[in-house]
Every structure is written in structure tokens, then in C-alpha cells.
Amino acid sequence: MQAYFSLIGFGPQGWGAQLAWATLMTLSVSVAAFATGTVFGVAGAWAKLSGGPVLRGLADAYTTVLRGIPDLLVIYLFYFGGSALLTRLGTLMGHDGFLGLNGFVVGMLAIGVVSGAYQTEVMRAAYLAIPRGEIEAARAVGMGRALMLRRIVAPRGLRIALPGLGNVWQQVLKESALISVTGMVELLRQIHIAAGSTRLPFDFYATGAALFLLLTTITSLLFRGAERRTQRHERAR
């Protein structure tokens, strides 16, 4: 037990500093991917709700395709496909040789695009769940579209969407482990390296699972806290 703690601790033999840094990387690439997904989600929900037939069709295709293929394939497509495009572009500009994409950017975009498909559905459902009377009331007092979005639709919809967004976040956090295939040193990659160099794979993969559990648990508590806060008025009744 002592040996284990000095192994993952911050001492001279320990992997603590690397693991802490890698955990931070996992967290930041997940936040970046989730934020990218929110942009896609807002655009997708808007296209589905008030776009014309073309936009709606595009948004439908987007959510169907990205929810129907493995995330790993999307990451490969962005990583290898993106690098291939970049290299071709480089050759056109006179640069010789291979140009690679950064693992962080690939992860952020690939997982962001996938989570955007799920966020589209969450936000669309949340908008439809806003009581129509409130939107009519806002129109009746003469609010413009922007004001109505800011005062009524966004706060009301966000509150309804929060549990669903929490689920998408958990998914993003867990999928972020897949970015390790690009060689970017996030939590799983660091665990893989440590397991290989110490020849103690079980200790390290179990530690990795525990660190991911810690991340999912803490962030799900945060989301639950936010949910409770936005629903204060409903409990008071």
C-alpha cells in the first residue's frame, strides 16, 4: 500500500505531478469540446426550429449521422483526414512533407462536433418545452426577438435543458479518453505511459479509472447544484 502511494504520489519516485497535469489536460480539452458542442448545438437547434427546409434537412442529417457513427471514427477522420488535407494544402503552398494536426485541436473539434449533435436535440426539446404563454406574453408586451431571447427564451430554456446538458457533459468527459489515440498526453495517455514504464499496468489503469470517476462525480455534483439553484422558485411553492 505504501509502495502504491509513493508510486502515484508527488515524491521523487512518484507520478503525481504528471497525473495531476494530465487530469487538468483532460478537463480542459473536455471543456473546450463541450463549448464547441454548444456552438454547434445552438446552431443546430436554431436550424431545426426556425430554418427553412434546406437548413432543417442539413441539421437533421447532422444529428442523424453524428449520433450513428462511433466517436472514435470521427476522431480518426479529423486526425488523419485533417492532416491529409493540411499536407495537401501545404504542398500547394510550397511546403514539403507531412503536416500534422495538434491533438488538442482534433479532440476539441471531433468530440465537440459529436456532442453538438446531442446538444442540438437537448436544446431543441428545451425550447419546445417553454410554455407558449410566456412567449406570447413577451410578444404582447412588444419585446423584440433579441430581447425575448435574452429575457425569456434563454433563461427559461437553459433551466429546462440543464439536466440533459449535464448528461452530454458526462459523455464528453468520458469520450475525451479517446483523444489519447492521437498521442496527446491527457489522462489516459499519461496512465498508459506510466503503466508501460513501471510495468504495473493494473495499478495505473485502476488509478486512471478512479481519477475519471472523481472527475465525473465532482462535475455531476456541480451540475446538480446548478439545477437546484435554477429551480429555487419551484421548490418554494
Binding site: 468520458k174 479518453a177 489516459l188 496512465i191 510495468r199 499496468p201 489503469y205 485502476a206 470517476l213
Partner: peptide, 23 residues
């Protein structure tokens, strides 16, 4: 359920594939 839903599947695969052979 908490453990298997809270950690990434890839970690679980590695834990079984690489990890169990340690013993």
C-alpha cells in the same frame, strides 16, 4: 453501476487487457 458508468469504456478495456496480466 457507479464505477462502470462513471469511467470511460476505453479505460475499462485497458484495465482488463493490460491490467489483469500484472497478477
Amino acid at each position: 453501476v457507479f464505477v462502470f458508468r462513471g469511467s470511460p469504456l476505453l479505460v475499462q478495456i485497458f484495465l482488463i487487457y493490460y491490467g489483469l496480466g500484472q497478477f
